[in-house]
Computed example of a mutant assay.
Amino acid sequence: EIKTEVSSIKGVQRPIPGMKVTGVHGETVKTEIPEGKATREGMKQREAAAKKLPPRQVQVIGGKTVRATPLVQNIAQKKGISLENIQGTGPRGLITKKDLEDYLALSGGEPTQAKGAFSAHQLAVARSLTRSKQEIPHFYLKCRCFADALLAWREKNRLGDGGKVSIDTLIIYVVARALGEFPLINSSFIENRPVLHKGIHVGFAVAAGEELYAPVIRDANTKDAKKIDAEVKKLSSKARSGKLDPRDVSGGTFTVTNLGMYPVDEFCAIINLPQAGILAVGRIGKTLDIDENGGMHIRSVCTITGSFDHRIVNGAQGAAFMQKIKDLMEGGL
């Protein structure tokens, strides 16, 4: 918006739209509405017409309000065209059929929006992760963990139906107990200071088609592995069927994410606001380990990577937390 000297002097009437005025530095500035439509009566008529727009002509696309006639909306939907890219010439920017036809003529009739646009949840996740990277000074620490004892415990402690607890369950179990000894990592940066959380509520990443959720195991440090496993499986099922409640995905104080089911050895994750950290776990593979006496052994191993908020956690604290997780994993719970 260009402010002129004329418009800023008290008692001097602002120029009518369409009028040419002289700017602060002597340049000629023309207001937005073209001449010929600049009368006060004309503006009143346009405002009155805009107020008469029926609600069905208003859409919200990607957070932007778009006004289009029902006919135009129908045509755009069939052709896979995003109306947010079209400039409307009707009242209050209403997109008319002619606007759509002109746009198609210029674009060669090709759709500008890929089918399967982001859902509201995906957009919310995208905005949250973007904000996290912009606001939180992430730093990352990784280490290798031998998983033989963990896998042996999983095999020995089968469920009543003969099944095994999930790897996600064991990671949550271990992380919850480590957080009990590192309360600062179980906190949030609020109003320029860390605020410690009373409970340890661990979220875990679940992919459901194109969606990504982080259901929360509440008071995870007070539950045994089998209790956590029952909740993990229940919440994962709800996520994949689209039946998660708001409470299921709120209140987390730390998050874990596991890509071990894919050929991913290691990765760095983005912290889930407003938490102070997240643990990323890669696949469990085999490696040749040479002990202190020169003995060679085939071991199961995985790489874990912690992402931390450097405003709250320093390098030494993060390293000690990773050491604790490693000790718990290699100790077989």
Results as ranks from 00 to 15, higher is better:
G42Q: 14
K243D: 10
S128A: 14
R299S: 02
C143T: 15
P17K: 02
T257A: 05
R40A: 12
L244S: 00
Q87P: 03
D327G: 09
I298C: 07
V206E: 00
K20M: 12
K51N: 06
E32Q: 14
E1Y: 11
A276C: 13
P194L: 04
D102G: 08
K98R: 15
I2K: 12
G88Y: 04
V24T: 13
L259A: 02
V256R: 00
V249H: 10
V24F: 07
G26Y: 04
L150A: 10
F118I: 09
V58F: 01
T39L: 01
V12P: 07
C143F: 05
N272S: 03
K37M: 14
F254K: 04
M19G: 08
D229A: 04
G277E: 02
R40I: 09
K326R: 10
V12H: 05
K97Q: 14
P34Y: 02
A269L: 09
W153D: 13
K227A: 15
F254L: 06
S241H: 03
Q275E: 15
G199C: 12
G26Q: 00
F118V: 07
A50M: 05
G93I: 08
R127E: 10
E101M: 06
A280C: 09
G108M: 03
I325K: 03
A117C: 02
E181G: 07
G23F: 00
F204S: 00
D245V: 02
T222G: 00
I228C: 01
L170N: 11
T112W: 12
N258L: 01
E191H: 06
M43D: 08
D289A: 15
F182L: 01
L179A: 01
N157A: 07
E32I: 13
S119K: 09
K324M: 08
K227T: 15
G26W: 00
T22E: 13
C145E: 08
R92Y: 13
P91N: 10
R154W: 10
V206T: 03
L259M: 10
V195Y: 02
D289R: 14
L259T: 07
D245S: 14
Q113I: 13
A214E: 10
R46P: 01
E5H: 13
Q13Y: 05
T305D: 08
Q113V: 09
K44M: 14
L123S: 09
S250L: 11
A126W: 05
R193I: 03
E135T: 14
V174Y: 04
G332M: 06
A230S: 15
P55W: 05
L71W: 03
N186Q: 10
E41L: 10
I136S: 05
I95M: 05
T31E: 08
S187H: 11
G318C: 07
D161G: 08
F189R: 06
E210G: 07
V249I: 15
Q134Y: 11
K142R: 15
T89H: 09
R299L: 00
A176I: 01
I304K: 05
F321M: 01
E191T: 00
A214C: 09
G209W: 00
K10Y: 13
H121R: 11
A124G: 06
A225E: 05
K227P: 12
E135N: 13
A147Q: 07
A117M: 06
D229M: 01
I217W: 03
L94F: 01
L141V: 02
H297T: 08
E135D: 15
H310I: 06
